[in-house]
Design a binder for these strands. Structure first.
Length: 319
DNA sequence: AAGTCAAGCAACCGCATCTGC
DNA sequence: CGCAGATGCGGTTGCTTGACT
């Protein structure tokens, strides 16, 4: 058809169709994850090479944790690596098996937005009338939450607030088996640096900003049930704003190395496997073939024929 | 049931870097 | 060495979905 030729010369944008995915997968099977531009020059797809590469990296590549929420542990790693490397999402993603730079970037972006909203709320106690929609969201995030007056971000007493709650396993590939998570907070004012917030911390700040203690909330079993909580045991005791300023120092996160994280054996980048070592690009999708050189054929040799239909859970590091 | 709003996600865009000629 | 194309990366946008009124 005359129109087909015209169509093939046009660049297609937007969501990918299953047929396009299939073409792309077949191309990678044949030639490996490269020569993206040739996909279009050969007339296989009306997509740019960049678009093809992005689709493969973000959605089609094997062993991706698509549709899987970030676990508390992954969140913690992102937080620490972001503090160390900055917005080097591709680099950070190499420490998170099955996660892409886009995943990490989106996760961080969402988290930043949430933090901004929380901090804005806690910082503007008199703006309750203008923040009705925001308090609405709080209810959404914390089922069972009851309206309480918005307060200044309060300080806890020096006594430790401690809470434990069950961790929800959201991914079959989770490496973490711990069923309990403990968080200790010495001074809530220590949590002013967004980089150190985990989702659990965020929830705490939300609650505290409204006059509820995390402990009280935990008692009522309504603590972020949909988000797997971090294996964090947070004992911050910053002394001053000067100290806080050091958070901008990429090495300052190492100050938290001795942070009590029993499950992690250290709070900085010396996190337990699988986060100990970055995952190289060649390891993605070829996790079981560490002995094989990375050739286009070897890349797929060990995969079952239906590998793209069912993603296997990542093996535990000990296996 | 319909409308509103925000979160999450997929994909695009522009720039930087790499690589081959 | 310089150039052009390919690839990688980070920022941004727009769509979808779900919670809520």
């Amino acid at each position: 058809m005359e129109g087909n030729r015209v169509e093939m010369s046009q660049i297609r944008k937007g969501p990918w169709k299953a047929e396009e995915d299939e073409v792309l997968i077949n191309h990678v099977k044949k030639y490996g994850p490269r020569d993206w531009s040739s996909i279009r020059s050969k007339g296989l797809l009306r997509r740019t090479g960049k678009s093809c590469r992005l689709r493969w990296v973000n959605k089609l590549r094997p062993n991706l944790k698509n549709g899987c929420k970030f676990t508390g542990e992954e969140e913690r790693v992102v937080i620490e690596l972001q503090a160390q490397f900055g917005n080097k999402w591709a680099k950070i993603a190499t420490y998170l098996p099955g996660r892409t730079d886009n995943d990490v970037k989106n996760f961080w972006s969402s988290r930043q937005k949430r933090l901004a909203r929380i901090l804005q709320n806690s910082g503007t106690p008199s703006s309750s009338s203008s923040s009705s929609s925001r308090s609405l969201k709080v209810k959404k995030e914390i089922p069972g939450f009851h309206d309480v007056p918005v307060m200044e971000a309060p300080k806890l007493s020096s006594s430790m607030e401690e809470l434990s709650y069950s961790k929800e396993q959201s991914c079959s590939s989770s490496y973490l088996d711990n069923s309990q998570t403990t968080i200790k907070v010495e001074q809530f004012t220590d949590l002013v640096n967004p980089k150190l917030y985990t989702d659990a911390n965020i929830a705490q700040v939300e609650l505290m900003s409204r006059g509820k203690t995390p402990y009280a909330e935990a008692q009522s079993q309504v603590f972020f049930p949909q988000i797997p909580q971090p294996q964090a045991y947070l004992t911050l005791s910053l002394e001053s704003q000067d100290l806080l300023a050091k958070f901008e120092d990429p090495y300052f996160s190492q100050m938290f190395a001795p942070m009590d994280v029993p499950e992690l054996e250290g709070g900085n980048l010396n996190v337990e496997q699988p986060f100990l070592e970055p995952v190289t690009s060649s390891e993605f999708g070829a996790k079981d073939e560490t002995d094989n050189p990375m050739t286009p054929d070897a890349f797929f040799d060990d995969f079952p024929a239906d590998m793209f239909d069912q993603m296997e859970p990542l093996p535990k590091p000990s296996e």
